[in-house]
Amino acid sequence: MNKFKIPVIISLAFSFFVLAGCNTEEDKRIVSDDLDNNITKISKTSQVDQSLSNDAKEFVLNKDNVTGVRGVNTATRLFIAVEIAQLEQFNEQDIGKEIKKELQKKYSNKKVEVSSDQKLFFELDELEKQVQNNNIKREKLTKKFDELEKLLNDEA
């Protein structure tokens, strides 16, 4: 039995490490190590200026019940995903709406979308990496924004 088990475990572990090595995107963002203040910032070298979303992310993270934030902006739109503190997650949709209202007031010339959904958090995290590495063109970013908005309003 043992003879059989050990090679299986080793091959499984090996394949895991190989697959984990196949990471899609190198992360060059400024990342905070604090788990309660999980924020990433995109440096100014990116094609689409991200100072607005960096600013908005800092504003959102200053709230007590927000533990993490990701966001990307284009010239006309701003997309923010928030991670809400564990016990506050019961009203995460209300908190998201409140943040959206505040951000819309702050950046009245932009179309603001805020989501507390984990899926949007994952997607924006990946998008941030692409924007940071200049791997995404302006038109593609707009297309991606449309896609995210569709995902956000998908009720099925």
Binding site: K119, L120, D154
Partner: peptide, 11 residues
């Protein structure tokens, strides 16, 4: 959620 297009609402 990570690998497919499911949100927290419909996952």
């Amino acid at each position: 959620m990570y690998f497919f297009k499911f949100t927290e609402q419909n996952v």
